Simulated assay, not measured.
Amino acid sequence: MRELVATPFGDRRLVLRRGSPKAVQLPHAKFEELRTLSTVPSGVPGWLAAAVAAQWRMDVSGRALDDVLLLREPGPYEFSRATWEINLGCDYDCEMCYLGEKRFEGLDMAGKRTLLTVMRDAGVIWLQITGGEPLIDPDFPESYRLANELGMQLEVLSNGSQLRRDRVLDVLRAYPPTRLTLSVYGATADTYDAVTRRRGGFDRFREGLDKSLAVGLNLDLSLIIVRTNAHEADAMRAWARDLGVRYREYANISPTVQGGAETLPSQSPEYLTDREPFTGCPAGATFFHADPFGRASICKVGREPNIDLTAEGVPGLARLGGIAESLMLRTGGCSGCKLSATCRVCRPMARVFQAAKAPLKNYCQHGTR
């Protein structure tokens, strides 16, 4: 496995190491030198060996360049990041899940290969694999391995229930993700299982968490705080600190992506926080989202219109910028709003709240003025 990837990133040229969030920035001339060297049998140049040793304490001196480095070509657009819902099925049934109906369906493995290749050709460097629960997909190990081989840096969002299984843990250990983010739903079995509505979920999560730490995976915890587990918020924080793992907290629950309000009663009022004013995002410009069928949209909330990447390929992404602009227009009661400069959510998210008939205070400054 080639551990290093040299890639364009906008106007910059980077060398990345698989599984590491760090990078080495190269002058354009050095990147072109690597491009030339990669066309013929060559050794790792001394300047690259020195830079890699300084950044990662990794010795590549004296090795063949083709054994160490994958050189990527730029995509035709500006897309460098993407998320991919490998499926929407889940082994949990959390009442606050924004996906609503969680059906296990999507592309077969041949379709997944096509989609990942299109992403690579589009210039995607950082890919977040999510779901549903991505690790229950039977094609996850092969898909994850292929994405690595195509030169993408991977993050996985998971509930952690499957990390106890060797078929999953082995591929993550062989190809370490830059980050493995695990959701935490409680600090005790009774509470965790009540939130997930799955008996034994806590024990499966804890076993997977311990195994992931034992093999040195780069973990990040998302503490999901809702009514059912709010009394254990301090215990969840203490657990993360005792493990020495970074954590973030999420208490502001959104409606389902279909505009369903059934998730909102799960919110714990005392833990809700004011959302920061929305000042723009890269959705549809340098970032896109792909659903289980390979349909690309600007993000996981603004799912329509979308583009079938397995049918249209990379050229289809040329339309995403226009789609993003149309979805961000203030409509549905928001046009002409005098508080628009302090909107707490983007227009696609506001439409989801509006479809759910959620209280204004959940997403709009008018709810507090």
Score class of each variant (00 low, 15 high):
136 I>E: 15
136 I>K: 00
136 I>C: 13
136 I>G: 08
136 I>L: 12
137 D>H: 08
137 D>K: 00
137 D>G: 00
137 D>F: 01
137 D>M: 00
137 D>W: 01
138 P>A: 12
139 D>K: 00
139 D>H: 14
140 F>D: 01
140 F>V: 00
140 F>P: 02
141 P>E: 10
141 P>D: 09
142 E>R: 14
142 E>Y: 11
143 S>W: 00
143 S>C: 04
143 S>K: 02
143 S>I: 01
144 Y>M: 06
144 Y>E: 00
144 Y>C: 06
145 R>C: 03
145 R>K: 13
145 R>I: 12
146 L>M: 12
146 L>F: 05
146 L>H: 01
147 A>C: 08
147 A>Y: 15
147 A>I: 15
147 A>D: 03
147 A>R: 11
147 A>G: 05
148 N>K: 04
148 N>Q: 10
148 N>W: 06
148 N>I: 14
148 N>A: 06
148 N>L: 08
148 N>E: 03
149 E>F: 04
149 E>M: 15
149 E>G: 02
149 E>V: 15
151 G>M: 10
151 G>L: 09
151 G>D: 01
152 M>N: 03
152 M>H: 07
153 Q>T: 09
153 Q>E: 09
153 Q>L: 08
153 Q>D: 04
153 Q>R: 13
154 L>V: 07
154 L>R: 13
154 L>C: 03
154 L>W: 15
154 L>G: 02
155 E>A: 02
155 E>L: 13
156 V>C: 05
156 V>W: 12
156 V>I: 06
157 L>R: 14
157 L>T: 10
157 L>S: 10
157 L>V: 06
157 L>K: 13
158 S>T: 08
158 S>N: 06
158 S>R: 04
158 S>M: 03
159 N>K: 06
159 N>C: 07
159 N>G: 02
160 G>H: 05
160 G>M: 05
161 S>D: 11
161 S>E: 09
163 L>D: 08
163 L>R: 04
163 L>C: 02
163 L>M: 04
164 R>I: 09
164 R>F: 03
164 R>Y: 04
165 R>N: 14
165 R>D: 15
166 D>A: 10
167 R>Q: 09
167 R>E: 08
167 R>G: 01
167 R>K: 11
168 V>F: 07
168 V>L: 11
168 V>S: 05
168 V>N: 12
169 L>C: 09
169 L>A: 13
169 L>T: 11
170 D>K: 14
170 D>V: 14
170 D>S: 15
170 D>F: 03
170 D>P: 11
172 L>R: 08
172 L>Q: 10
172 L>M: 14
173 R>A: 15
173 R>Q: 13
173 R>V: 15
174 A>T: 14
174 A>W: 00
174 A>V: 14
